[in-house]
Structure formats: C-alpha cells, structure tokens
Nucleic acid binder design. Sequence first.
DNA 1: AATGAATGAGTGTTCATTCAT
DNA 2: AATGAATGAACACTCATTCAT
Lengths: 191, 191, 191, 191
Amino acid sequence: MKIKTEEQYNKIINGATIILLTEGLATFSTIKVAKLINMSQSNIYVYFKNKDDLLVSVFRYHQKKYIHFLAAKWDPSRSPKAVLTNFVTALNQFHTDNKDSLEVIWLVRQSPKLRQLIPQVADDEIFVKIFKWLESLQKQGKVRPLPLMYLTNLVFSAVINYFQLLDSQELTSNEMSIEEIVTPLSALLFV
Amino acid sequence: MKIKTEEQYNKIINGATIILLTEGLATFSTIKVAKLINMSQSNIYVYFKNKDDLLVSVFRYHQKKYIHFLAAKWDPSRSPKAVLTNFVTALNQFHTDNKDSLEVIWLVRQSPKLRQLIPQVADDEIFVKIFKWLESLQKQGKVRPLPLMYLTNLVFSAVINYFQLLDSQELTSNEMSIEEIVTPLSALLFV
Amino acid sequence: MKIKTEEQYNKIINGATIILLTEGLATFSTIKVAKLINMSQSNIYVYFKNKDDLLVSVFRYHQKKYIHFLAAKWDPSRSPKAVLTNFVTALNQFHTDNKDSLEVIWLVRQSPKLRQLIPQVADDEIFVKIFKWLESLQKQGKVRPLPLMYLTNLVFSAVINYFQLLDSQELTSNEMSIEEIVTPLSALLFV
Amino acid sequence: MKIKTEEQYNKIINGATIILLTEGLATFSTIKVAKLINMSQSNIYVYFKNKDDLLVSVFRYHQKKYIHFLAAKWDPSRSPKAVLTNFVTALNQFHTDNKDSLEVIWLVRQSPKLRQLIPQVADDEIFVKIFKWLESLQKQGKVRPLPLMYLTNLVFSAVINYFQLLDSQELTSNEMSIEEIVTPLSALLFV
DNA sequence: AATGAATGAGTGTTCATTCAT
DNA sequence: AATGAATGAACACTCATTCAT
C-alpha cells in the first residue's frame, strides 16, 4: 500500500491509536476511527487494505519510533549495571514522551491473531546488538545462564508492569521511582 | 432440579472458556458459545445478565480455582527461599492441571473494559496472608523495600512469561526448566 | 435449515421472488426483500443461512411447484403428437397460473454461479419418465436420433421463448396462439 | 493522439468483456475492470458516462462484430435449406472465432434492466434482409405461417442452446455435431 | 427453565461517481 | 487525457438483547 497523502495517512494512524487505547482491541472499529478524525469511513480503505492492515500499520508505526529511540540511546561501552540503568532510564523517558506507543505495542502483542501478522522484530539491528551484548556477558559468567529470550522478556515486563501500575493508579511514583527497579533487576540479571 | 440448573450453569461457563481461548476476546460471542454447547442462545441470558456478566463470571470461576489451589499449598513455616520455591512449583503444577484457568485469568485482565468489572482480589484471604508474610520479611530487612504490589506482580509475570514462551514455542522446557526461575527470582526478591 | 414459522418463510420466499423478477439477479439484495415485506433484514438470516441459500430456496420452491404440476399432467398413453400437445398445453396453463414460477426457474438457471448450487433435477421422477418415453420412441425410429438432453432443451426453450415474447409485447397471443407451437415442434421432434 | 484514445477505448471494452464473462453481471464492477487493464478507475469515466453506458457499449461492440459477420456470409441466392445450412455453419464459425462475443450478447440480454438500454437490432440492414427473405418464402407457402420474430428466435436459440450444452459439457461434439441441427431446424422452419 | 423468533444496531468491505489537479 | 483522493450509499452478515410461549 503506497502512502498517498502522508498527512491523511498519519491522521488515520493517530485516530486509530486513540481508539485502540480507549476501546481496546475487542471493540475497535474503523467506523469509530473515521468519526473521530472526521473522515469518511471508506477513505480509510484507500489508505489501508483492510482492518487488520490498519492495525498492523499502527503497530509498526509505534514500533519504529521505539526502535529508533532505543538505537539512539544504546551504549554498551559502560559497565553492565550502567548499561541496564541507562536502558531503564531510556525506556522511562520514551514512555513519558510516547505513552501511546508503548501501550499500543503491548496491546497488539497480546492478541494471538495480530501477533501472527506482525513481523518479527528480533532481527532488527538494535535487538541483534542487545542480544550479542548479553551473550558475551553470559560467556564471561556475568549474566545468569538462562535463555536470552527469557531474560529480555523479564526486563521488559518488569518495566511495563511498573508503567501499568502507575497508569491504573495502583502505584504512585512517590511510593516507588523508576530508578528503584534497577537494583532488583540487576540482581535478577547479573551474577 | 437445582442440580440440573448448576449443571447448565457450568456447561455455559465451560463453553465460554473454550470460545474465549480459541477465539480471543475480540470475536467472542454468545452465539458461538450457544452453538458449541448445543443450547439456545437466549437461555444463556437466563443464567447471565448480559455478555459482560458472563465474561466476568468465567473469570471468577477460574480465579476461584486458582485461589483455592494457592491456599491449599501455602505454607509460610519454612525459609523464605523454600517458600518461594514452593510457590513457583505450585503455580507450575496448577498450570499443568488447569492450563485454561491461567490463560483466562491473563486474557480477561488484558481488557481495559473488563478489568473494571472484575472485583479486586487483593482482599482474598490467601493474598492477605501472602502480603503479611512479605511485609514481616520486609521489616526484618530480608525482602527488598519495594511496594509489595509491585513485587508480587513481578513474580507472577515472571512465571506467566515462562508459560507463554513455552506455549508459543519460543522456548522449550529442555532449554530451561521452571525450577531455574527460582534463583533469579530469589535474587530479585530477597536481599 | 429447519422451517420455523411457515407463514414467515413463505413471506420471505414470495418477497424474494418479486424482487428477483423486477430487479434481476444483478441487483437483488436481502435489504430490498426485507423492505418489501416489512420485516427486519436480520430476520431473513434466521430463516436462510445466507443470500445464496435464499436464492436457491426460491428456485427450489418454484421448481417443486412446476414438477408437481408436470407430474399430474403427464400421460404417455396417447399418441406421440397428442402427448406433445398435452405437454405444451400443460406448460401454458402452468405459466398462466404461475407466471412467476417459470420466470424464476429460467432466471436462476442463467446464472453460472447459482446453477452450481442447484440440485440436478434430471433425477426427478417425472423427468426420468419423460426421458424413458422419448428413448423408447427413438428406438422405434419415431423421434429424431439426437441427444435427448438437446431435444428436451429445444422444446422447453421454444415454449419459454413464446412466453418471453408475449411478456415483452414483441408478440401478442392474437398473432400467434400457444397451440400453433405444436405443429413446428412436432416436425422438429418426430420423424 | 486520437489513435491513442481509440486504443484506450478498446482496452476498456476488452477488459470489461473479460470481467463480464468471468464474473457475471452480478459482480461486474468498474474497479475490477480498471485493475485488470492497469488503468485508473476514474479514467473509465472519461470514456463512458457511467457503468451502464460501459455495459451497453460492450454489448454493442460485440453485436457489431456479429452483424458484420452475418452480413458478409449472407447469400439468399440458393435454396432455402442451403441458406439455412449456410447460416448455421456461419454462426458456428463465428462462435469458434469469437466465443466471447456470442456469450456477451447472450448475457447482457438476460438482464431486464440492460435489455431496456439496448437498441433494437431489428432495424439493422442484415436483419431487414433476412426478414424479407423469410417473408417472401412465407408468401410462397414454403415457410410455416408463424410470426417471423418467433421463427428467427427459435433458430437462434436452437443454435445457442447447442453451444451452451457444449460449454457446460452436458454434451460433446462427438455425440452431436452442429450440422445435425440443420435437419430438425429445417423441419421446424420449412413446410 | 428453555427456546424460537424477532429486531436494531453495528461492522467490514465494495463500489459508482465526482472533483481537483 | 489521466489520475489519486474522497465520499455516500449499499450490502452481506453478525450479534446482543428482548419477548412470548
């Protein structure tokens, strides 16, 4: 699907993002998106092949942002714990600036149906770098000898969990700051 | 007669569970449940006020199972690490015996709309016990001084993550056994 | 699809027949049928699985009428030409009483897509009888030695053609009566 | 420049012919035509006023071919039966060379809506000639005294019927050759 | 308690047509 | 002449929910 008027394309993506986050996947509909952005529903089908195409495009849009951000912040030249701190801080900053993006990424990943339509991200350059970094530390015995897939998942969900508790107001940033995650995560990750 | 009613109630709950897990929340419908269990769709409305009521009831049904199981296995008389090991092993056993239950609990929690309808579980007896146990350990300086809500969340998602990776075949139990979670989790939890 | 309220079922069939004949297959829609008979469109789907199911059912409804009529009139005990005359007269009478039926049968047969969904009628008892009658006459050299399928087709389309020209007012029954078909058809059929 | 325009015009007609024959009238759409011939959908509206105009133009295109062909083959100088034989053979040859054309002519004629938009062909020179020829034979008592409109219709549908049965493989040319039509048709037509 | 029937609202998708460029 | 964009209307089909029996 060639991008036609970039402005309109983004308008739809942004509208879809809002509907997705307020309604959830279950009741997301193109009609609601169209109404929100004041556009005819049929015009959405000029820009996207079908509903799934729209949803996947929304996901990709936010994932690209996320990946670019991570890549810009990645600096493995420091000590392992400093790298972890840096990573957590970066994620926190990204979440502050792009709250929607992280939520969309998380949301779409939860749907088995959509997950199948989403391209694997693991091959992306930045993730390859992170995996290699972890791998070399594991060989030096500095990282726990568990599957990298599992370790990175744990770190990610530890951070996301924090954000979700903040969002649902079950936790406040006074009770616990993001930096306080680093120590337990460090204990979990490093030997 | 009363027995027959309970039978029908459970029939609906079980049908709904299957549809929920095979279809996902997005395309779950009472029609599909009715067809699956060979019952008239309108009869579902005799047992449940509406669709959301059914979904919440399904959630509660599995959550009760889960809570009963945990309560039966809970034994805080041993050392903290032994308690953690015991907890993880119990969860694993529950997951093996009641795969559906854990998945339903996880699935329903993902929906913002449904989460609001679900009663807080924290007041349940078993969770009160666990929280008290953690609290006392924290006072003795044996558990990291982080909000208990966050710590328990971390443990739960570490275990769920493991199950999910197994299910999606991104991980095999050969590469990593459930027991191997205990050491990193212990490091994360205990000082 | 079990017939539920026969009255409603027939109401839908009749409405669909009217729409089919006035609109043609190309612009036939369940919405138009529903509006015509003052019924909710969704209720049509209680009685018919889908649009094609409705169309095929309409066809079958009229075909059954037609077959019953033919069977009642069939009498091969007379001379070949008398049988032909009888047949043509019967068809004419049926057409007078059930104009819609013959048109629907013809219309639906023209659609390649629908033809596939329609059960072969050739096995029907009355057609088996007609074929056997023709076959035996052929063996006696009284009927032209052409494929029976083709001969019967010719007779049927000769009659239908006549009705169509009347309907489109390109011909009037004054210019030509139905009985006048018999002589040329007889010449065509019999040696 | 003008040549290019005619090229495009024909491109559309040919594309429309293909869609018409593969999809049928019911699901024919300008979008499908545009996609097939790799042209913008809106450009079709430069050449044709609307969808019906396109369909009628397609019909006329093939009808012209057909009429030209008939005119070229028409030779009333021989005996009536020879003329009939000649006519049937010509139709068969035309069908072999221009299968699409005959099918389109037949297809469009089936639609009540389109039939109204189609110009009467009877005034065309070649048909005038054929009618005059039949008329004069009728006056000599050599052709059955039935409306010419009906007789010509019968001949045409006898031939088309044959082609249709071949196409639908309900008949093979081994079982019956086109020439075998002539004898019964002759009996039907001539006294 | 159980069911069949009915309906209104919604949903994804297609399409004919128009318009500005 | 050609095209991309936009739109409103239509359509098949699904579904939650209600009601009478």
